[in-house]
Design a protein around this nucleic acid. Structure first.
Lengths: 233, 233
DNA sequence: CGGTGCGTTGACATTTCTCAACTGTTGTGG
DNA sequence: CCACAACAGTTGAGAAATGTCAACGCACCG
């Protein structure tokens, strides 16, 4: 019988939330829970795409390796998110590599063959996938928009203003889901530039920053920056 | 009866190529051919998404307007391409604005209501859409990759190396689907920087460049640049 | 402890942008 | 058909942003 943990995780995913239990069980039959240590590689760019994944706990980064050895992070993912569906549905190989970034990282691996069989046999699943692919598309369009912002200050401000946050206005706390080094790479700047930006904004009392989170004191100022209304802060 | 031009265009689209004629006719019944002049706006960011479009001839750019009046081009599209399906399928409003860039630009406007009715009633269509959405996702991932390349030389080289081209090795001709001004924006640099790059590479006999196309004389050198192996050329 | 790697800071090099001037092309109205 | 305006494209000079290199403190882990 299918692992109840697998079923529970699958049923909480945006793709599958609306699916009948019977379909979930079919997909669950080809899935299993897996656990990775930080730094472990799930798959590499170019590998045949045998499965896609859902994150129960921890984090995963998707990246591409350039010929000169550096790596370019395409996406950073956390609990409740899925990845590599497109590779399973349409491509024969993974277009990027995936690495666990936390210890432990718990995933559900959904077997591609089983999934494709259910997918081909039942239209309800394909309709559900269309919705989630559209959302993914939108988030990538916003990523492109972010990356084309002129200067690094605008990119950082834009990023901060879209992260989920807690706290009252005037004291909004934004949790950083990754290290500052990785955040810098995500925003296409060097760690030094990021550090200096945070410093400068801190000195002006626009933000406070500690390891793992940023507190926004002057959100108006930040939004102005994200819209390119000032040179760089 | 459905306009035969509409039907012919629809049947040549990647999404619909594999669809039965009967389905195409249903979708075609809610579609019509339209013609735009260069600079005309098809829809604006935030408008309710009543239709998506397929390009028969001409060109379209999708862009977002920033608060300070500049516009950021998200995508440039040509004949055979479609856009705004995701807005129709999943979102209630267009996430970006669209403008015709050539004179004349001929489009097929596919009515959202009709399309959604067919989409919901027939699983073959949703399966077809999944495939094309996956391709769209992949192309956006590559766009993100391109934009995160360190320097402008690498971005331009990367762009040139992925454009469709004609001619024998050593004399590859790449047609530019947009003005150099727009290409510069696409690659997130200023027109001046683009001009200077082309000039420098021309002086070194790596390329030749005229209005509307670039001839690649030394592809190896360009690939090295795209991989960040030299400072900037 | 000692090592490893992140984050910070400073000095300096390089890239890229900005501003301004100039050219050539195109399209328009007289 | 011409004069002219509008605009893409080019070039130069100087300014600003960002990257590079090097040094250091600090936390975390074995």
């Amino acid at each position: 019988m299918t692992d109840p943990v697998v079923l529970e995780t699958l049923s909480s995913l945006p793709h599958f939330r609306l699916l009948e239990r019977e379909l979930l069980e079919q997909i669950g039959a080809g899935s299993r829970a897996r656990r990775f240590a930080s730094g472990e590689i799930l798959f590499r760019e170019g590998d045949p795409s045998r499965a896609f994944f859902a994150i129960r706990a921890g984090g995963v980064k998707l990246y591409r390796s350039t010929r000169d050895g550096r790596e370019q992070v395409v996406h950073t993912l956390g609990p409740g998110q899925t990845f590599a569906e497109a590779a399973v549905l349409n491509l024969r190989r993974y277009p990027a590599s995936a690495m666990a970034t936390e210890d432990p990282t718990e995933l559900i691996e959904v077997g591609g063959e089983t999934f494709l069989r259910v997918f081909r046999g039942d239209p309800r699943l394909s309709a559900a996938m269309v919705g989630s692919l559209c959302m993914r598309l939108l988030s990538l369009v916003e990523r492109v928009e972010e990356l084309t912002l002129v200067n690094s200050g605008a990119r950082l401000a834009h990023y901060l203003s879209r992260q989920p946050s807690t706290g009252p206005p005037g004291k909004v706390v934004v949790g950083l889901p990754m290290s500052k080094k990785d955040l810098a790479a995500h925003l296409s700047m060097t760690p030094e530039t990021l550090s200096r930006l945070l410093r400068r904004w801190h000195d002006r009392r626009w933000i406070e920053s500690d390891r793992g989170s940023v507190t926004i004191l002057d959100g108006t100022r930040l939004l102005a920056l994200a819209n390119g209304e000032e040179s760089s802060g």
